[in-house]
Amino acid sequence: MKNIDLENKTLLVTGAAGFIGSFLTKRILESVKNCRVIGVDCITDYYDISLKEERLSMLSSFGERFAFIKADIADRSAMEKIFSENKISVVVNLAAQAGVRYSIDNPDAYIHSNMLGFYTILELCRHYPVEHLVYASSSSVYGTNKKVPYSTEDKVDNPVSLYAATKKSNELFAHAYAKLYKIPCTGLRFFTVYGPMGRPDMAYFKFTNKLVKGEAIQIYNMGDMYRDFTYIDDIVTGILNVMQKTPAETEDGAPYKVYNIGNNNPESLMYFVETLEKCLLKEEIITEPAKKELLPMQPGDVYQTYADVADLQRDFGFKPATPLSDGLAKFAAWYKGYYNKH
C-alpha cells in the first residue's frame, strides 16, 4: 500500500450532488489543505432535485476550491474535457443509478449510468493516469448469501437484482483495468447508508414522509429483516481514509482491493421503525405512534445485511460505530429544520 498526500491536489468526485458525494466533498474541503474538488453530477430526477440543489448550496461556501460541472459520466466528450483540462490525482466515483426496486422497472438507467458510465471513468483514468480510483460498490452484491457476516472473501456470483449485478460488474471491470493498466482501484461495498439530507427513496426517509401525512408504513417480511445501518459520517470517514492509501497488488499483480463499509451490527427492521418513531415523536414531527402494515418479502430484497469490516479495521484502524439511535436523532432534527424552512 502506498500513501497519497491529498494536499494541493485536484480531486474528482462524481455524484457530487448526491447524498454520499456531497458529504464527502464537504469533509475533503474542510480537512485537506489547498486541495480542489471538481464535482460532477447529471442531477437526474430520480428523486426531488431540490434536495440535490440544497446539498450543492452547502458546498458553494468553499468558493473556488469547489467547481461543479453538470455532466453525465457516460458522456465521453464531457468527461474527457474535465480530465484533459485538469490534472486529476484521485477519482471517487459515486455517480450511479441507485435503488434495488427501481431497477426492476427501469433497467436502462442502470446499464447507462452504472455500466457505461463506470467504463467511461475507467477509460479516462487509463488515458489520463490518476494515483487512485475509489468507487462505490454495494452490499447488495452479496445477494442471498447465507453466511454472515458478509466477507469480501465470499463468492458473490448470485445477484438478486439488476442493480446488484451492475455493482458486481463494476468490481470486475475495475479488477481488469487495475491488472492491465496498473490503475490502483479500491471498491467500497456500502451497507444501508442513512443520515440528514439523505435519499428520499430510502426506507427511513419514506417512512418519515408517510408518518407526517398520517399514512401507514409498509413493513416487508412482517418486519423480520435485518440491516446493517451505517451513518453517513462513518461512511465519509471510511472513504477519506481509503482515498489516501492505494491497495497492494493482488497475487495476479493488480493493485486492487474491495472493502466493506458497514456498522458491523445488524438491527431488525422493527427495532429500526421503533427507534425512528421515538426520534420523530421527540422532535414533534409526528404526534402519535406509526400505523404499520405488515407485508410479505418483496422481489429483489434480501433477508439481512451484515458487514465483516476486519480488513477495514486492519488497514485503517477504523470501523463505523455510530448507534442507530444517535444517527436517526440527527436525521429527525435535520428533517424538522429542513421541511419547516421549505
Rank of each mutant, 00 (worst) to 15 (best):
Y102M: 14
T120I: 02
D72G: 00
A74F: 04
R126S: 03
N34C: 08
R27D: 08
N263Q: 10
H342G: 00
A216V: 03
S84G: 06
L328K: 05
G18R: 02
Y150V: 01
S137T: 09
A321G: 00
Y271Q: 13
K282N: 15
F190T: 02
T305Y: 05
D75Q: 01
L312P: 05
N263F: 02
G337R: 10
T208V: 06
M58L: 09
G187I: 06
K210T: 07
V302A: 14
I261F: 15
V258K: 12
T246W: 13
A310N: 11
M79C: 01
L172Y: 11
G187C: 11
L324R: 04
Y142F: 15
D224T: 06
E153R: 10
D233N: 14
P289G: 00
I49F: 02
G300R: 03
K278D: 13
Y338V: 04
G214P: 07
Y204C: 07
A176Y: 12
N241C: 15
N8A: 06
T275M: 13
R314K: 12
G337W: 00
G63V: 03
E215D: 12
V193R: 05
T166V: 03
R227I: 02
D311P: 04
D233P: 13
L124H: 00
T25S: 13
F316E: 08
D41S: 08
A164L: 06
K330I: 00
N93Y: 06
A78S: 10
P149V: 01
G337K: 11
R189N: 10
Y177H: 05
K179N: 04
T246C: 13
Q298R: 13
N86D: 03
G327N: 03
A178S: 13
I183T: 02
